[in-house]
């Protein structure tokens, strides 16, 4: 608790991103704050449309130009506000200190360049290296991410590799300059289940080896349980719950988190239970419900929930857990005494 290790590497404060459309303003990210410490794996969880990808891309400043950040939004990386950097300074960070891997390795690699060349490009952009050194670095990286026969593979084109291999190449590319922060945007979603586990194991192993911080964006709590240290749950552009993985899985406080957990197929002991889903769907971002954005889908919502919006507050004195809910759930998912009975039964 005392060492400078605990000092946040990345600190996001009041990040607010909006797009104005002809039908009105959409706010994919609505004043969220969180931080990532060195060596930590933080998962940002939510359904599609929850704003998790936009908030991740704003760290890289790679959102579409239509997306505007409200003044007061801060993304501090090592004490510098990334949103205020010049494009050229930002470019020096991308791929060098902060790098990113994406959902679909099928489309994320350039189809007309050999993979060796694509990995080497990252190195050449940020380091002064001879072609020979670049090649050695590429070979080393390919070995590290578990690609067999790297000497031959580096002259392959992306279409000659399997999906899992391509994602390994993406990881190699992201780690080429030994960055301090890796943003992984749904890194396993497009892959087969067996390959998913391999890629997650690889990310975890590489994290332990290099001490890199990881921001993992996913909709899949199974993935979170696998590798994350801390979890942020996002809903409609806001963080609704935050806690360590253990705390969260032990005792979800927000009904939405509980719903997400219930909808993960589990293969453990009590797998007899029915696979539940959250009723309804993510609200239209142009017509967000008043009060708590989740109240329309929440089995425990009271009238009050539809009027006043809960803010993210500390859930207990002894831990860093936070939740944005008027009626947080009790231990073991029991309904807390305030809550009304379900109106979905």
């Amino acid at each position: 608790m005392t060492s400078k290790e605990e000092w946040p590497l990345l600190e996001v404060k009041n990040l607010h991103a909006s797009i104005s459309t002809t039908k009105g303003n959409i706010i994919p990210v609505n004043s969220i704050s969180y931080s990532i410490k060195p060596g930590e794996i933080v998962a940002l969880v939510g359904e599609s449309g929850s704003g998790k990808s936009v908030s991740a891309l704003s760290i890289m400043r790679l959102n579409a130009p239509e997306i505007k950040y409200k003044s007061g939004s801060v993304i501090n990386y090592k004490g510098k506000n990334l949103l205020e950097l010049k494009e050229k300074e930002m470019r020096r960070l991308r791929g060098n200190e902060i790098s990113m891997i994406f959902q679909d390795p099928m489309f994320s690699l350039n189809p007309v360049h050999r993979i060796g060349k694509q990995i080497a490009e990252t190195v050449k952009l940020h380091r002064k290296v001879t072609p020979k050194e670049a090649k050695d670095i590429v070979l080393d990286l390919l070995k590290k991410v578990g690609i067999p026969d790297p000497e031959r593979r580096m002259s392959n084109y992306p279409h000659q590799l399997s999906g899992g291999m391509r994602q390994r190449v993406m990881i190699a590319m992201a780690l080429a300059c030994q960055p301090t922060l890796l943003i992984a945007d749904e890194p396993t979603t497009a892959l087969d289940v067996t390959i998913q586990a391999q890629i997650l194991t690889l990310i975890r192993n590489l994290q332990e080896e290099t001490g890199i911080s990881v921001l993992l964006i996913t909709h899949d709590l199974g993935v979170v349980a696998e590798i994350a240290d801390r979890v942020l749950v996002m809903y409609c552009g806001k963080i609704v719950e935050e806690g360590t993985v253990d705390e969260l899985f032990e005792n979800p406080l927000h009904p939405y988190t509980k719903g997400l957990m219930a909808s993960v197929p589990e293969l453990s002991e009590h797998s007899k239970r029915r696979l539940e889903t959250i009723p309804g769907s993510v609200p239209n971002p142009l017509e967000l419900p008043k009060g708590c954005n989740f109240c329309d889908r929440c089995p425990y919502a009271s009238e009050e929930c539809g009027e006043k919006e809960p803010v993210l507050t500390k859930a207990s004195a002894e831990s860093d857990r936070q939740v944005a809910c008027w009626y947080p759930l009790g231990k073991k998912g029991e309904i807390n005494h305030y809550a009304k009975t379900s109106n979905f039964s």
Binding site: L62, L93, G95, F102, S108, N110, E121, T122, L125
Partner: peptide, 26 residues
């Protein structure tokens, strides 16, 4: 607008280079 161009940007490639090195040949 393709994904691999976004990947190129995420590597620190400039706009000019992203057009010439990544976009143009495709």
């Amino acid at each position: 607008g393709a994904d691999f161009v976004r990947t190129a940007y995420s590597k620190g490639v400039s706009r000019w280079r992203s057009i010439f090195n990544h976009g143009l040949r495709n």
